[in-house]
């Protein structure tokens, strides 16, 4: 729709307009006189003000106290304003490096949790020692071994249960299932495929049970056990044979945490490419030094 304009009749013809104008100028003069009388004082003040404004010394004399007051206020308020800005910068920085932080925190958190588990294990160890006191044959055997080897009896009981051997270790990028590093004993193992399949199985299991935030931690088949330790953008898999005790389980997890904290970080894992260097370290740490 268009807006119509200029078709409004101004309502006066030419001669009467002129007359009005004439009248107005007379009135204006009168009005001016009236203003001068009424506003005389105000006008004086205005002139004085203009005077001050035009002379710098006079101006500064007047302004200084005001500026000083303002500066005082500013000094007082400054730390608050400053802090707010600084906090904003810091929180932005943190938000941007959130992923890096999480990556660093995961192994440490894992360690703390594992420490607790280790403590629980000590209690278990004591209980086990108690239980075995009943078996005379076992008692004698371990006594003799303890005598010759100088190991604590309870430790021997433990090691008997743990003919565990670490066979293969993988570090896998979480979402893509791309292999970051691997140390393997079984030469014919297709590491890329294991990494992909592991990830698919893991995703499937986690999705199927729809447990938000829950992550698969162990897969067992035959006498093979796969221990998983999840980090922010990658996860560890240690494949081992033998029956594992909860203590040993805790130790292997601790080993993974230590390795993660020392040798893995977001930068190394981010692009999901295979690393020979990390693989070699894995081999040193898990396969060549199987002691856990």
């Amino acid at each position: 729709m268009e807006i119509q304009k200029s078709n409004i009749d101004p309502g006066m013809d030419e001669p009467s307009k002129l007359a009005a104008q004439h009248q107005l100028s007379d009135d204006a003069l009168l009005f001016e006189e009236l203003k001068e009388t009424l506003l005389h004082e105000d006008r004086e003040a205005l002139r004085e003000l203009q005077n001050i404004l035009n002379q710098p010394e006079k101006l500064s004399q007047k302004m200084s106290p005001v500026l000083e007051k303002r500066l005082e206020d500013f000094k007082e308020a400054f730390p608050n304003d400053y802090r707010a800005i600084l906090e904003k910068i810091i929180s932005e920085k943190l938000a941007n490096s959130k992923e890096e932080l999480l990556e660093a925190i995961y192994p440490i958190m894992g360690k703390l949790i594992k420490k607790y588990i280790a403590l629980q294990f000590d209690l278990l160890r004591e209980r086990m020692a108690m239980r075995n006191q009943n078996s005379i044959w076992y008692k004698t055997k371990t006594r003799i071994r303890a005598f010759f080897t100088g190991t604590k009896e309870s430790d021997i009981i433990l090691t008997d249960l743990m003919d565990v051997e670490i066979k293969n270790v993988f570090v896998i990028q979480k979402n893509s299932g791309l292999l970051i590093a691997a140390a393997i004993n079984d030469a014919e193992l297709h590491t890329d495929l294991v990494a992909g399949m592991m990830t698919a199985i893991k995703s499937f299991a986690e999705d199927a049970f729809d447990r938000k935030g829950a992550e698969l931690e162990v897969i067992t088949y035959d006498n093979y056990q796969l221990l998983l330790e999840n980090y922010y953008s990658y996860y560890f898999v240690v494949a081992l044979t033998g029956t594992i005790s909860s203590h040993q389980d805790a130790l292997i997890h601790e080993k993974m945490n230590n390795f993660a904290a020392r040798h893995l970080n977001r930068k190394k894992v981010k692009d999901g490419q295979f690393s020979e260097a990390i693989s070699k370290k894995l081999k040193d740490y898990f396969i060549d030094n199987p002691k856990v």
Binding site: Q173, K174, N175, S176, G177, L178, A200, S203, F204, E206, D207, G272
Partner: peptide, 10 residues
Amino acid sequence: VPNSYFLGTS
């Protein structure tokens, strides 16, 4: 299709 299958896909 489970969402997780799409993660990390190129």
